[in-house]
Design a protein around this nucleic acid. Sequence first.
DNA 1: ACAATCATGGAGTTAGTGACTCCACAATTG
DNA 2: CAATTGTGGAGTCACTAACTCCATGATTGT
Lengths: 164, 164
Amino acid sequence: MIVRFREKRMQLSKGFDYAVRSLVFLALLSDGASAELRTIAESQNIPLSYLAKVMRNLVRGGLVSSTLGRDGGYCLRRAPEEITLMQVYAVIEGEMRLVECMEDQKNCMFYKGCTQVSVWHKLKNAVEEIFRETTLKDLLPQPTGEQRLTQLKEKERKYARAGA
Amino acid sequence: MIVRFREKRMQLSKGFDYAVRSLVFLALLSDGASAELRTIAESQNIPLSYLAKVMRNLVRGGLVSSTLGRDGGYCLRRAPEEITLMQVYAVIEGEMRLVECMEDQKNCMFYKGCTQVSVWHKLKNAVEEIFRETTLKDLLPQPTGEQRLTQLKEKERKYARAGA
DNA sequence: ACAATCATGGAGTTAGTGACTCCACAATTG
DNA sequence: CAATTGTGGAGTCACTAACTCCATGATTGT
């Protein structure tokens, strides 16, 4: 039996979710390294040929670069902190439209008297602001206490060497 | 040819939009007055029998009351400033779920390492905050300059009488 | 009491599209 | 040249928002 997502509105698409996950995966690679489609798909449990489409959009959008042939794959084009969710959203979904008449109000039959459109815009702005201020870096898993301790020691050693 | 809404994610349902429009319509009636389904539907260009369903939800949700029989119809149960968009959303759409694994993270295969869910929650909170702070009153059309002038004169006359 | 008028309830129907698949093709490299 | 990798696009499928229909129940004026 396939358990499915009871659909309610205001939800994000899987494509967008997949894109973000994949980008985070790429961001976690030691810098500059690339990963093939299959690796990403398997690690993130994303259907391979569907992810192909998503990645193509990311390539077209300039967020990742792809190399063909043996040892090919995808890698980030910019540092994680320079890639915002807004950019990802724009690449995957385009312009955000909460309602039909969001920008082309001429089509809206309530053109003149419509008082709600301002609220929808406020909503859109709030969402986009969060998208704009959230970068891939914010989505990277925080180092555990142990890891942070290691980093600290590393730093200390550096300072010690610098002082010597 | 039927022109249709190019669907992009993060959009609000028509049901919700219809609900809000209808409530605003009711709020504009001189207080206590009720309007029948047909009146609302026609004024707002909403398919009659679809609106019936929406209104039923609003009744069940306690936002409007309905009276059957001749001269029946719907009217607001509370003052416009006491009805928030959040309440309307809850009645029409239920709990907001931006992604599948929003609350039942056990189902999420990335349970442990998932760093994005916090962003989705931030998003949800931002949207819900706007919904919570926006009431029907905020959606009522502002009086035009002319109307405001009339109101002002009305007030002056009152004061004049009071002074006399 | 009755008929007109109103909402209620629930079982359809439909079109659109998000999510996913498949396959042929193009580029790269050992 | 053969293996490996991404590209491109047409095609499929299931789900559901949006909408319809009809039978039923409540209320009120006459």
